[in-house]
Design a protein around this nucleic acid. Structure first.
Length: 285
DNA sequence: GACCAGGAAACGA
DNA sequence: TCGTTTCATGGT
């Protein structure tokens, strides 16, 4: 029994949002985007004035999907807080409608632990392997590959061996994922409770995990908890800051991070996502 | 076949 | 407090 709904939203670019390295399980086919949110398989389609959605299983309350998509966020208000400079204006013009999603914390944390020095296509492959190996099967019948499964729980991961995880081709990231899963399964780290802490406190807790440094912590703070001030600096964003803002002189990573923390305003993380996607897509045009 | 990827941690100067 | 090296794997 399928269910469907329409979420009104101005300026929502579904492709840019789902294909900008925030999430790793969404695939486009036959004009729809297919993915999994929690235990629900979902199909999405961008319409003129919003997002149309359909699930395989019946749904009464759609709050979980509305929250994931962040359709209630007034994008225009956020964009107005961005600095009015040339690089930022170019990035916004190029990817208008790009949104920051609100993900489930464990899936987000696990995915970004697996992201270390991996290309986005490869992160997708590793996550797909992980779901096929350890995820619970989902109800319904019209999905293929890893979309047949939920993202595996911390308890499930905590119960397998490092060798089992390495079979998903995650290499040296395996002990880091296993360690994080055990901390959570053992109750030593209360992931949902991090959302009640100040940003800096939550960041500290995340960085206490082996394999989680500042960049991965910032991704989780921004993509799972909605701390819009978090500003992940990876190789692409570092390149964006260096070439777009300081083209004449080489600036140290530390200086770039200080610049980022002071220049982009209260929704810096949102601005970061525009710069990231802009840099990754502009040369292809 | 070289080079690099949404990094982090250990190490040496 | 810096820069350098190592880690595993696969895309380009």
């Amino acid at each position: 029994m399928k269910s469907e709904i329409f979420f009104p939203a101005k300026d929502y670019d579904l492709a840019a949002t789902l294909d900008s390295g925030q999430v790793f399980r969404w695939v486009q086919k036959d004009g729809f985007w297919s993915g999994v949110v929690g235990r629900n398989r979902v199909q999405l389609k961008e319409e003129l004035d919003g997002i149309w959605a359909r699930t395989d299983a019946p749904v009464q309350n759609w709050d979980w999907l509305r929250k994931f998509l962040q359709t209630d966020v007034d994008l225009e208000t956020i964009l107005r807080t961005f600095p009015n400079d040339e690089p930022m204006n170019h990035a916004v013009t190029a990817c208008l409608g790009l949104r920051v999603l609100r993900q489930e914390p464990w899936e987000c944390l696990a995915s970004f632990i697996l992201s270390a020095t991996k290309q986005i296509v490869q992160i997708r492959q590793i996550v797909a392997h992980l779901c096929e190996c350890f995820g619970e099967p989902l109800a319904g019948d019209n999905a293929s590959g890893n979309l047949r499964y939920a993202f595996p729980s911390p308890e499930k991961i905590a119960g397998v061996t490092e060798l089992d995880l390495r079979k998903c081709r995650m290499g040296f990231r395996a002990p880091n994922l296993l360690g994080a899963a055990r901390e959570i399964a053992d109750g030593k780290l209360d992931l949902p409770a991090l959302g009640n802490l100040p940003c800096a406190g939550a960041r500290e807790k995340l960085m206490a995990l082996r394999g989680v440094g500042g960049k991965i912590a910032d991704c989780v703070l921004l993509f799972a908890y909605g701390f819009d001030s978090a500003f992940p600096v990876d190789v692409w964003v570092e390149r964006a800051l260096q070439t777009l803002y300081f083209p004449k002189r080489r600036v140290s990573e530390k200086k770039l991070k200080h610049f980022a923390a002071t220049h982009f305003g209260p929704h810096a993380g949102y601005a970061q996502q525009y710069l990231f996607h802009y840099m990754r897509t502009k040369k292809k045009r």
